[in-house]
Lab assay of single mutants.
Amino acid sequence: ATNIVGKVKWYNSTKNAGFIEQDNGGKDVFVHKSAVDAAGLHSLEEGQDVIFDLEEKQGKAYAVNLRIK
């Protein structure tokens, strides 16, 4: 899926990971530091509006192509 709108639920820069809550009510999506880095960002803030694509690896959904809304 592409161009999904959501809000950062939480992001821990020590653990280099967090979750994004989908505005469409879907399951929360894992976001890794690699996606944050690829977006040219240093970190994510709780409640921040984002747009992202979903990629599945080994049955788990990940946020990729992250951008700030």
Results as ranks from 00 to 15, higher is better:
N12G: 03
F30I: 06
A38C: 09
T2V: 13
A39R: 02
Y11C: 04
K7G: 01
E21F: 10
V8Y: 03
A1V: 12
E55M: 14
I68L: 13
K7V: 08
Q58K: 12
T14F: 13
G59A: 04
E46Y: 12
E46C: 13
A39G: 05
A61E: 11
L54D: 00
W10Q: 03
V36T: 03
W10S: 06
S43I: 11
T14V: 12
F30P: 06
Q48I: 09
D49Q: 15
A1E: 09
R67L: 04
F52Y: 06
A63L: 04
K33W: 10
D37L: 15
K33V: 08
I51N: 03
K57Q: 09
K33D: 02
K33C: 08
L66V: 08
S13L: 11
V29F: 05
K9P: 00
G25Q: 06
G6C: 02
I20W: 01
V31D: 00
A35I: 07
I68P: 07
G25L: 06
V31H: 01
I51R: 04
I4Q: 10
G40M: 07
D49P: 14
V31G: 01
F52S: 00
G6M: 02
A63N: 01
L41R: 05
K27S: 10
E46S: 15
V29H: 02
T14Y: 14
V5P: 13
I68Y: 07
G40F: 06
H42Q: 12
E55Y: 14
E21L: 12
H32L: 08
K7C: 07
A63P: 02
T2N: 10
F30H: 05
Q48L: 10
E46M: 14
S34L: 10
K7P: 00
G47W: 04
G59Q: 05
E56G: 06
T2R: 14
R67Q: 07
A38H: 08
L44P: 01
E55A: 12
V36R: 02
G26L: 09
I68R: 06
R67I: 06
V64W: 07
K7Q: 05
K15Y: 13
K60Q: 09
V5M: 13
E45Q: 13
K27R: 12
I51M: 10
W10P: 00
A38D: 08
D28Y: 11
H42L: 13
K57I: 11
L44C: 02
K9M: 04
K27G: 11
Y62F: 11
Q22E: 04
H32G: 10
K27E: 10
D53W: 04
V29P: 01
I4S: 05
A61D: 07
F52I: 03
S34Y: 09
I68T: 09
E55F: 14
N16V: 04
L44K: 00
I4H: 07
L66M: 03
V31K: 00
Y11F: 09
Y11Q: 01
V29K: 01
K27V: 11
H42N: 12
K60Y: 11
N24R: 10
I20P: 00
H32I: 06
G26V: 07
H32A: 09
G6V: 02
D37T: 14
A1F: 12
N16K: 15
W10T: 05
V50N: 00
K69D: 09
G40V: 03
D49M: 15
L54M: 11
G6L: 02
A17P: 01
V5H: 15
A39I: 07
R67C: 04
K15D: 07
K57N: 10
A38S: 08
W10V: 05
S43A: 11
A1N: 13
A35D: 05
E56Y: 15
S34K: 10
V36N: 02
L44I: 07
K57P: 03
S13E: 11
A38Q: 09
E55T: 09
A35T: 09
E55R: 12
D53M: 03
A17T: 10
E56A: 08
L41S: 03
G59Y: 04
A63Y: 01
L41Y: 10
N24I: 08
S43M: 11
A35M: 06
E21H: 11
K60H: 09
I20H: 01
H42G: 11
F30V: 05
G26D: 09
G47P: 00
A38W: 06
A39N: 03
V5I: 12
L44M: 05
L41A: 06
K15I: 13
D23A: 15
N24G: 12
E45P: 07
N3K: 06
A63F: 02
I20A: 01
T14H: 13
F19Y: 12
N12V: 06
K57E: 08
G40Q: 07
D49S: 14
N3A: 08
I51F: 07
R67W: 04
Q58I: 07
K60M: 10
G40Y: 05
A17K: 09
V31C: 02
K7F: 06
A38Y: 07
I68G: 04
E45M: 13
N16C: 13
D53L: 02
S43D: 11
